[in-house]
Design a protein around this nucleic acid. Structure first.
Lengths: 285, 285
DNA sequence: AGCTCTTATGAATCATTGA
DNA sequence: GTCAATGATTCATAAGAGC
């Protein structure tokens, strides 16, 4: 299998138009926050954030496969003592474009930025908004199962009376097939709250986007050989993870500094793979 | 100090109008969710939720002191595979009424409802929206400081439990060291993510609103003798906690069943206190 | 007291059935 | 056809029992 990592240097508003429609399985991105990263996108004013993003989400809707998902990592800034409303306005406007707002995951940042303010506490969570084109989409839930809690260890060998009753009521003919499934299970499905620490391997890029975040969604929504897109590549975390996980990827970045950095990173990775005589190729276009 | 717990049987849309303006220090409430509790509020349709709530939030804005806070516990329902938008629409509309959307806390429910679905995971968080009338409001951050370290694990529930025991045991003196003094350890400020398990002490009421939730906000936003309001009293958790913490309170409930239950609960509590010859009075009007 | 073990169930969601 | 009711799924916690 030939795995491709296509890096594009340019403004995603324009570059997205060159991507084929219905070709992407998963979009994972963390766009520049309002008034942040002023060098890259001119410091988007919170009041103009929605208008700035809508042409981009329009293109994202076009390139995403009908069965694909779009994960948008975003959090509203505090402006004048208030949480700004551009994120929730964006949700409403994206729905008008045709997006379905399927779910909102919470990324709980355990090691959130320290600080003290007179009227608020440290902000230790961000939104991970899931959008889809259709009600039916690809989802591989079993790939992200987690070890179950401690209580199970004690409980596995001793089914409670209530569990027995519940089971017999639904599997009247015999001793529950469901129970036997349950007994051997050591992993459970996660919830919609993700616990991940921030991390910043790259001091040249401020975004503390941990690899585990795109990894989780790539596992959940794609298979090997699928296409992953990050229109705001930044330090290239999503692309790097996609490549490691044998997914094709497209990364777009407007700032030359970050683009060069990722380019170099991906290249050296490619060499590394060839040295090990890996059977698949990582190409950079 | 005479602490009052005023219980009102009626529709809060009407009853709120009888409350004096600028008289409440803190509003903590968990309104009926859309399409839930059909018996009590006629099962508000998600599409009509905002229109239903706005007259109420208008009155809440009137009765709240300029320095007070309003904590709204709410979560959007899944409708037709999508998260419904009534909550974020409500935020936008309440801002038009004059409310400031100061912060959004996350209540992480560790023991969320089980279940498995093809396209989503278990929902284990709810919104705790903080609204204010002014940029400047009362906030006593030091009252909710937590020991450094295992905050996320179980500290809060342990604290609240011990706090409760302590409160009741020291009732005779009327005063006592608060929790922060009692813990002579290094303490840190919490974040805007609260970890609390759901609980249901009262089998007659379905709302799994843990006592530690209103307790945390009452500590954070009020002092003894202040006024706490819950326009959707339900099983009376907020009122009960306010009373225990020596705050005056007003609770409004439309359903006779719940109202009677709380009335009885508060009454017996009152008797209990008098038997111990407590120096303060708990009155029920 | 402090353990361990037992038991019940919760603001859920989806697919199916029935009126 | 729509809309409402029912069944199936499932895990972390508290409260209680037992030692």
């Amino acid at each position: 299998m030939a795995i491709e990592a296509r890096l594009i240097h340019g403004d995603c508003t324009e570059e997205l138009k060159k991507i084929e429609e219905n070709s992407i399985d998963l979009i994972v991105t963390s766009p520049p926050y309002a008034d942040q990263r002023k060098n890259s996108y001119g410091g988007i004013n919170p009041d103009r954030y929605v208008d700035w993003f809508l042409p981009i989400s329009e293109e994202l809707l076009r390139v995403l496969k009908p069965t694909g998902s779009f994960i948008l990592n975003i959090k509203e800034k505090v402006v004048n003592g208030e949480r700004h409303t551009y994120v929730i306005e964006l949700i409403l406007e994206m729905r008008k474009q045709g997006w379905l707002w399927t779910e909102e995951f919470i990324w709980h940042k355990k090691n959130s930025y320290p600080g003290k303010w007179p009227n608020r506490f440290r902000d230790s969570w961000e939104r991970l908004l899931q959008f889809n084109k259709n009600k039916k989409f690809k989802m591989f839930q079993e790939t992200v199962m987690v070890p179950r809690g401690d209580w199970a260890k004690n409980r596995l060998s001793n089914l409670s009376e209530k569990d027995r009753i519940r089971d017999e009521s639904k599997a009247g003919s015999g001793f529950g097939k469901n129970v036997s499934n349950w007994l051997n299970r050591e992993k459970v499905y996660p919830t919609n709250v993700l616990h991940m620490a921030t991390q910043c391997n790259n001091k040249n890029h401020s975004a503390a986007f941990p690899e585990s975040l795109p990894e989780w969604f790539i596992k959940l929504f794609t298979k090997e050989g699928d296409w992953v897109l990050d229109p705001f590549m930044g330090a290239g975390t999503t692309i790097k993870v996609a490549q490691r996980m044998m997914r094709n990827s497209i990364g777009i970045e407007i700032q030359e500094k970050y683009f060069k950095m990722v380019e170099k990173n991906i290249k050296s990775k490619q060499f590394h793979l060839f040295e090990k005589t890996v059977t698949y190729a990582v190409n950079q276009t």
